[in-house]
Design a protein around this nucleic acid. Structure first.
Length: 882
DNA sequence: TTGCGATCCCTTTTT
DNA sequence: GGGATCGCAA
């Protein structure tokens, strides 16, 4: 039931990272003097040579070569499973051991999860090297490992003014975008019937990915439809700016633009980051390409950019969102001095799996031939099964997983833990049936859907309140909650206020404040609006976030908002009347939101705050001390905004610093806006992972099942129009197959029910493309076969397998969660969980209790298996006995 | 203004 | 099958 609640990942904010000591204006930038052309000083390690040597242990010659190549452009073509992450990690460690300051290194990944893992691994490698004086932390200090989107969000906060934004801008997700596009279509006096918001949005998004803004789009529009969309684009952009908001594409677009047109910003970034690494380079789009090249600097006689890109053209699966495979194919053209290293040997998959993947990908015509090889031997054939329908398919997958989980070592088959297994599918819609099958087979599972928690109505509403608090111009969020719970401000009244806002070109919140100027508003509505405004003002201290009445922690703030807005009461009343499980869950989810804010706050490092000086020099010694200042000791405030304006370290760029609570709130909202599905994958959970093929990129599992190998699904219907799209589908399938280490199951269903209709399917061409000798096929689609048993392997060629789908024996099956949850703040004098006892947390899994502090905000310290040691506030932690 | 029921639409992948 | 939207009654 709680499986799909995501983990608020170890976001960048939690890392000891871009801490440039920017809480104080560093008036000079001494660090900038350090330049790559200068000779390196000795590494800080006691025995640098031994340490540096240790970094090459266990590497193949090409891997070692890639690690050793530190200066000048480098292209690493890393085939699937070729030890790419290892190379990147070691290479960064090697750079540091060569004396490069960590803060001069920038590594860009695709997901927060990947960034977090890489950071951890670098930390492990480097941390182990120094032992004497406890300085290990300092060795990764200032290192920037993050995603393109996070980096851009931070840079945009810092350079907001230069980009024409206020630093408290909101980041709009797809549903916010849709709301705004609808309004833009209306504003352009078009009909949403002729111009579907979704498709208009995708046109706009594609344009932005290619760095085409509204202005240029309008200039280049040639026919009626293009011109109409151009008008929508213009209106949409205007509305975004009026809401002081950016969408995902803007994060990249605006930074790319800024880097191009603003020499100060560009110079600052170039000075700060002398070494740039980009992972998954085959999936970068035009905007990302520009950002990377601009930070690296153009190659010239005097400048050899230290840019290292890693990727694999065969794993390019994001063409549909603007990724441009020619970025990686043309790298050597763009950087003529580039060295290229090919990592071809696969260390992950068994020979049959690898050979199958290789055979499949060879069917792509538009592809450079590339060897894919392993020195491994043996291995099991792939299982390929034709099922009756999706229900049969799901239970068969469950049985297959169970079989491998319960395998008997005595019979020569090593058992595989749940967490070492995954199920992939092409579309999210397929997950439901699988989920049900996992439940009835008592197999613990997790769905990798990072955003699902934040997409629930109650959480969305709570977040909308927070976004209005952080950014009062955020009209989309305001529109969402102005009448939730109902306070008598209906569409008619809001329409009138909107008119005023439109007419005066002022933010909605401003118009609300001036609602008495609006004609035709009922006294009731007017009164309600005034009350609403004063609510917001009370929470924000009139926008200053300072003063005695202002909450001092994020969790307190959210708690207060939930109570005073009436949101919590609304859901409680609802739960009481309906008594339905789903309504009870809403309250839990709100508590969970507070809990995740709590967690965020505990792990928050103010020194890595978005508003801090990302591009400045080395971290200052007092960075940490400053970050602990209380909320009352903030810097002097600018009268209007409550924001302090501080001159930047270098250049003429103003850095605006927010009061701590506001900064925290921003960081929290930002981390939520940028979560990815793959961020949720957590091996410590001890459960099977269900996810889309796209989300599977970069991961590996000993046992993998891929379902729905049918024409129209994989390859997807929408991809059949062009060869290009079809080849991308094949790559997607290739990515899925190459995630598997030892066991792989591919299934198709003869009949599949979609949107209520059962239809006959055709098996995927991709299955035909697999080499027979590596496949153990079986057709179990006979409708007269034993309907109940779905016994895996009864029809299969080998008899080794014969496991019933519905076994109830399981050592680590899921337990009901809502057993204990300790009665809130009261009764927190004693821990309900004795020290040393074992507890379970919905996000972090199982751990053992290490410490307990009593009090109103009783805290409990738990050492989680895999998730590390965390201190949680008991009231919110939702711990249960494990 | 609100809340409910009927109807329509839609179906990929995601930072 | 299910979510969003629309229309109608209170």
């Amino acid at each position: 039931m709680f499986d799909d609640i995501p983990i608020l990942t170890d976001d960048d904010n939690t890392a000891p990272l871009p801490s440039a000591g920017a809480r104080r204006p560093a008036l000079s930038a001494p660090a900038n003097l350090a330049h790559s052309s200068q000779p390196r000083t000795a590494p800080p390690s006691a025995d640098p040579n031994t340490f540096a040597e240790s970094l090459f242990q266990g590497l193949t010659p090409p891997q070692a070569q890639a690690v050793r190549h530190t200066e000048g452009p480098l292209l690493i073509l890393a085939a699937a499973g070729s030890g790419k992450t290892r190379v990147i990690t070691r290479r960064i460690a090697f750079l540091v051991s060569c004396g490069v300051a960590p803060w001069q290194i920038l590594a860009l990944t695709f997901t927060n999860k990947a960034a977090g893992e890489m950071r951890e691994r670098i930390h492990t490698v480097l941390g182990g090297a120094v032992s004497e004086d406890g300085t290990e932390n300092r060795r990764t200090r200032g290192l920037t490992v993050t995603t393109f989107h996070s980096l851009c969000a931070r840079l945009l906060r810092k350079y907001a003014a230069a980009a024409g934004l206020k630093p408290d801008f909101s980041i709009y997700n797809t549903s916010d975008q849709l709301t705004l596009v609808k309004k833009a279509i209306e504003a352009a006096q078009l009909s949403t019937a002729n111009f579907q918001p979704r498709s208009v949005l995708s046109v706009i998004s594609n344009a932005k990915n290619e760095l085409i803004d509204a202005e240029r789009f309008a200039a280049e529009a040639y026919d009626f439809s293009q011109k109409a969309i151009a008008r929508v684009f213009t209106a949409y952009t205007r509305k975004l700016r009026e809401a002081n908001a950016v969408d995902f594409d803007d994060l990249l677009l605006l930074i790319a633009k800024l880097l191009r047109v603003n020499p100060d910003v560009r110079a600052e970034c170039q000075r700060r980051w002398q070494y740039l690494m980009v992972d998954e380079y085959q999936d970068t789009n035009q905007a990302q390409f520009q950002i990377a090249s601009l930070i690296a600097g153009e190659p010239s006689a005097t400048h050899r950019p230290n840019i290292c890109v890693v990727g694999d053209p065969d794993q390019a699966i994001y063409g549909w969102r603007g990724a441009d495979i020619s970025n990686i194919l043309d790298f050597e053209k763009h950087y003529p001095a580039a060295a290229t290293i090919k990592l071809g040997e696969n260390f992950r998959s068994s020979p049959p799996i690898l050979a199958s993947a290789d055979a499949l990908i060879k069917h792509n015509k538009n592809r450079k031939p590339k060897p894919l090889f392993t020195s491994k031997e043996g291995g099991e054939k792939l299982d390929v099964v034709q099922c009756r329908d999706e229900l049969h398919e799901a239970s068969l997958v469950a049985a297959w997983l169970r079989k491998h989980h319960d395998a008997d070592p005595a019979e020569g088959a090593a058992p595989i833990a749940w967490r070492e297994m995954a199920i992939f599918y092409r579309t999210n819609a397929l997950s439901r049936v699988l989920e049900e099958a996992m439940r009835s087979a008592n197999i613990p599972y997790t769905i990798a859907r990072g955003t699902s928690f934040y997409e629930r109505e109650e959480v969305k509403n709570a977040l909308a309140y927070l976004r209005v608090i952080a950014n009062q111009a955020d009209s989309v969020s305001l529109g969402r909650i102005i009448n939730v719970p109902t306070r008598g401000i209906g569409d008619t009244s809001m329409g009138r206020v909107e008119e005023l806002a439109e007419r005066t070109r002022s933010p909605m919140m401003e118009a609300l404040r001036n609602a008495d100027q609006v004609e035709g508003l009922s006294a009731r509505a007017l009164n309600a609006m005034a009350k609403f405004v004063s609510l917001i003002d009370a929470w924000t201290g009139g926008g200053t976030f300072l003063g005695a009445n202002i909450s001092s922690t994020l969790a307190e703030l959210i708690d207060r908002v939930l109570k005073e807005s009436g949101l919590e009461a609304m859901y409680r009343a609802q739960a009481q009347t309906t008594k339905s499980e789903s309504d009870l869950e809403r309250l839990d989810n709100l508590a969970e939101l507070i809990s995740s804010a709590q967690q965020f706050e505990l792990e928050y490092d103010a020194a890595s705050d978005p508003a801090s000086d990302l591009t400045g020099g080395p971290p200052s010694a007092d960075g940490e001390a400053i970050s602990k200042l209380s909320s009352l000791a903030g810097p002097a405030l600018a009268p209007e905004t409550g924001l302090a304006i501080i001159p930047a370290a270098a250049g003429n760029i103003n850095v605006i610093q927010a009061p701590p609570l506001l900064a925290l709130l921003r960081g929290f909202l930002e981390s939520i806006a940028l979560v990815a599905d793959a961020d949720v994958v957590d091996p410590s959970q001890g459960s099977v992972t269900l996810m889309t093929l796209h989300a599977a990129k970069g991961l590996e599992f000993p046992a993998v099942a891929i379902v729905g190998l049918e024409e129209g699904l994989l390859p997807h219907m929408r991809a059949r129009e062009s060869d290009e799209a079809l080849e991308e589908e094949r790559r997607l399938c290739f990515v899925g197959i190459t995630r598997a280490m030892r066991r792989l199951l591919l299934t198709a269903a003869k009949y599949r029910t979609q949107r209520g209709m059962s239809e006959r399917t055709i098996t995927s061409r991709f299955l035909e493309e697999l080499p027979r000798e590596h496949v153990r096929g079986s057709d179990q689609s006979d409708p007269y076969a034993d309907l109940q048993g779905t016994a895996w392997g009864t029809h299969a060629a080998d008899d080794e397998a014969n496991v019933s789908a519905v076994q109830n024996i399981s050592s680590d099956r899921q337990r009901p969660i809502r057993e204990l949850s300790s009665g809130g703040a009261s009764g927190a004098g004693r821990s309900p969980f004795p020290i040393g006892s074992s507890v379970r947390h919905p996000q972090f899994g199982v751990g053992s209790v290490k410490a307990f502090t009593a009090g109103a905000q009783a805290r409990i310290t738990v050492e989680f298996r895999g998730a590390g040691t965390k201190t949680l506030v008991l009231e919110y932690a939702r711990l249960t006995k494990a």
